Structure formats: C-alpha cells, structure tokens
Amino acid sequence: MPAAADPPTGVLLLQIGTPESPSVGDVRRYLREFLSDPEVLDMAAPARWLLLNTVILPFRPRRTARAYRAIWTEEGSPLTLATRALVAGLQTELGDGFVVRSANSTGHPSIPSTVGELVEAGARSLVVMPLFPQFSRATSGGLTDRARKEAGSRNGDVRINVVSDFPDHPGFIGAVTDVARPLLDRFEPDHVLFSYHGLPTRQIRAADPSGSWCLTSSGCCDSLGDHNRHCYRAQCFATTRALVGSLGLAEGGWSVAFQSRMRSQRWIGPFTEDILAELRASGHRRLAVFTPSFVADCLETLEEIGIRARERWLELGGDDFLLIPSVNAHPIWVRGAAELIREAATEGVSG
C-alpha cells in the first residue's frame, strides 16, 4: 500500500485589497470597511466613527473613485491582477508541496474564506506573508492577526509561520534593481526619490519597546538593530540603503520622503509633496521616483505618484518624471518570495 502523501503547506499572501469596481458606491463600501479597522484608524471607537462618518465618507468616495477610474484596466484593478500573477508564479516555483492563495483584509477574496479553502485542501501548516516589505501594525501586523485568529477557529491543529517583513531581502532588492536599472539608464535622472507610504508618528513610537529611541534624534533610522527592528520608518531607510548600494547611486543624488498623509494628524516626514518643491528649487529637472513600500502597483503608486506627483513636478517646472514600476510578479521577486516562504515553512515554532 503506497504511503500517504504529506499534507501540503498552505501559503497565504495578504493584501489590503481594492474596491470591486471604481464606482462611487463600491469605493464607499471599500473605504467604510477598510477604515473601520482599529489598526488603520487607531483611535477611540467614538472618534473613529465620527471621523469616518462625518469627514471621510461624505466626501472622499467620489474623489477616490475618480482616482481608481484613472488606473482601472479592462481586466480590473492593477493590484488584483499583479497579485494573481504573483500567486501563479509562486505556485509554479514552489511546486506541488505548497498550495498558494491570496486574500484581502477588505473585499474579496476574504481572509476567512481563503484560510478555509487552504485547510480544506489539506494544509495543516500555513505560511502567512503580508505583501509589504516594511512591517507596520496597520498593515502586516493587523493582517497577520486576522489570519492567526481565523486559523485558530478551525478544527484541528493548524500551525502558523509568518514572513513578517523583508525590507532588504536580496530577492526583493534584486527585483527592484532589475526593474529599475534599464529605465534609469534610458531616462538619465538628475535625482532619485524614494517615496514610502506614511504613517502617524504615534504608530512609529508605539513600535519602540524602549520608548526612548524612535523619532528622538535625526539619526534614529541610520541603522537597523534590536532597538528598532520593528520600526516601519527604520525599515524604510534600510530598504533605501540597500537599493542605493545595489543601484550604485551617488551620495547626494537621492532623497527619501513619505506620501499619503492625513492632514488632521501628525505623520512621519519629510513629505513627498514638500520634497518635490525643494528638489525643483534646488535646480533638479529630471526626477525618477521609486515606491518601495509596495510590491504591486496600486492606487498609491500609479495614481498618487504616477499621475498626481508627475503633474505637480511638471507644474513646478520640471522637465520630465519617471515612476519606477513595482516588482509585481517579476521573476527575481517570485524566486525571492519563494525563498522567504520556504525558510518560514521549515521553522519549528510559530512565527
């Protein structure tokens, strides 16, 4: 009698998600669900309800729907398409011993339904991988908690291992470099900007176990160590240092900034919109922009930077502007992600 096959390892790739369509109604539903998450709007429930229902939802859905329409394709959301391609690439790379799926915190496919699908496929161990290079509670932490909770509610013993972040992993850095290098060679920028998604300063301080390191000095993110291992801002600078080295960028030829801030709160800086003005005032004319807090092109890369930041740069008198695409399902990234997943799958204890 042949031996029973070993159960497969489930792989759960996690994203925030996207509206079902760029219609105002679908965008409103998406924003309501997404921004109701206490990890995203980390404030007292009554204050979150007031902000959401009296400030955000009456006005933002129409504006955000226009932004989504500007990047939507005939096949759907760019984020959805890129994630599907990554799932397919990883399934091929990892082989029959793994079952790869993706899920969203908001919208479809949902985390509960996808965990259920993996368990029904026979998986008794899951590798959970939020698709964000740098760790934050608002994204990676909250998504992982949801996956743990859902796996724990299932009958049987489902082990969870986690790829929590990969800010300077060679597979990620190598893929970004391979995407960017030929584009930079043709474009010949006179400056390179690394624009990361912003976070409220209180979330950065909350990640500091000592309470005395993060955001207390101008050099607090100059290195990554035990004191700031889970600091989102420090990991962004670690990504930048790795890319600067890999691309061979000259000192003074690059900057770091943070985008997508909410003006009603104090967010980490410097802000991308301010840096654009400063770079033009310094005489720069040809700007290339990376968005390495995302592995897949989405609203924040294609519309916020690729359309609005480009328009602002040209309004300021710049000559040209280049958005470096995300790694999406680039072969080097597929191999790098597979390496991270295999390493996590062999860990003997829950990640």
Rank of each mutant, 00 (worst) to 15 (best):
S223N: 02
L57G: 07
V334A: 03
N104L: 03
Q265H: 13
F237A: 05
L118A: 01
L302K: 02
L322M: 05
V27M: 10
D42V: 01
S77P: 11
R229W: 14
H330R: 09
P325W: 13
E75S: 13
Q265T: 12
S153E: 13
R66E: 15
F135N: 05
M43Y: 10
R310N: 08
F166S: 02
G89R: 08
E311Y: 04
L41M: 13
S212F: 01
R312H: 14
V162R: 00
D168A: 15
S164I: 00
G245F: 00
L31C: 06
G89Q: 05
G89K: 10
T106Q: 05
R186Q: 15
G10H: 06
L193G: 02
E300G: 07
E339R: 13
A338L: 03
R28H: 14
F98A: 08
A82F: 10
L199T: 09
P112K: 08
R310E: 15
L316E: 11
T272M: 04
S260L: 08
R285S: 14
L243P: 06
P182G: 05
V99H: 06
V119M: 02
R28W: 13
G76F: 09
R205S: 12
A309V: 01
Q91A: 15
E347F: 05
L31G: 07
S21Q: 05
G171E: 12
T240M: 04
G152E: 11
F172D: 07
L302R: 03
L302M: 13
L13D: 05
A337H: 03
V163N: 04
E300M: 05
E343R: 14
G95E: 11
V11I: 12
V119E: 11
S223C: 01
T301M: 06
